[in-house]
Amino acid sequence: MEKLVQITSGRGPLECQWVVARILKAFLGEAKDNTIEYEIIHRENGDENLTLKSITLLLKAKEECLTGFLKSWTGSICWTGKSTFRKLHKRSNWYIGIFELEGLNEITFSEKEIRFQTTRSQGSGGQNVNKVNTAVRATHIPTGISVFAQDSRSQLENKKLAVMRLREKIVELHIRQLEKRMQDTWNNHLQVERGNPVRTFTGTDFKNHYQDRSFKKQRNALKTQLKNDYNDLS
Rank of each mutant, 00 (worst) to 15 (best):
K53Y: 09
Q183S: 04
Q6K: 04
Q17T: 01
H174A: 14
L173G: 11
F109I: 09
K223S: 07
S9F: 01
A221M: 13
R153T: 06
S9K: 06
I77S: 03
I98D: 13
L222D: 15
N188C: 06
L66K: 02
R181D: 11
K112M: 07
G29R: 06
K227N: 14
T8S: 01
T139V: 01
V19G: 02
A162W: 09
E179W: 01
R219D: 10
R115Y: 00
D151R: 03
G103D: 12
T108C: 10
T51P: 03
I23T: 15
K90T: 11
W94H: 12
H174I: 12
K207Y: 11
A26H: 08
L57T: 01
E111D: 06
I175K: 14
M182E: 08
T35D: 09
R91K: 10
K223P: 03
F85E: 09
S9R: 05
G68K: 05
S121A: 14
K159F: 07
E2K: 03
G144I: 07
G81R: 09
W186R: 02
I77G: 02
F116K: 02
K180F: 15
K223V: 13
R115P: 00
T74A: 00
R11K: 11
V163R: 06
Q177T: 11
I141M: 05
V136S: 07
F148N: 01
G126E: 10
V171G: 07
L101E: 05
L161G: 02
F109N: 06
F148V: 04
N34A: 12
R176P: 03
K217D: 05
L58M: 13
D232W: 10
Q191D: 12
R181A: 10
E63Y: 03
E100S: 00
Q122S: 13
R120S: 00
T74C: 04
I145F: 09
K60C: 13
R86I: 06
R11N: 05
L156E: 05
L104H: 11
W94V: 07
E102P: 08
F85L: 06
N228H: 13
I107D: 06
N158P: 02
N45W: 03
F215V: 03
S152E: 12
L222F: 06
Q127A: 08
L190T: 08
Y95Q: 00
H209E: 14
E100Q: 05
R120E: 00
A135V: 04
F27E: 07
N220S: 10
N45L: 09
V20P: 01
R22V: 05
E193K: 09
K53M: 04
R176M: 12
G29K: 08
E48Q: 14
G103S: 13
N130R: 13
N208S: 14
E37H: 09
L59K: 04
V171A: 14
I107F: 10
F215L: 08
R167S: 11
A135W: 11
M164P: 01
E168K: 10
K159E: 08
K169W: 08
I98Y: 12
S76M: 08
V147S: 11
Q155H: 07
H189Q: 12
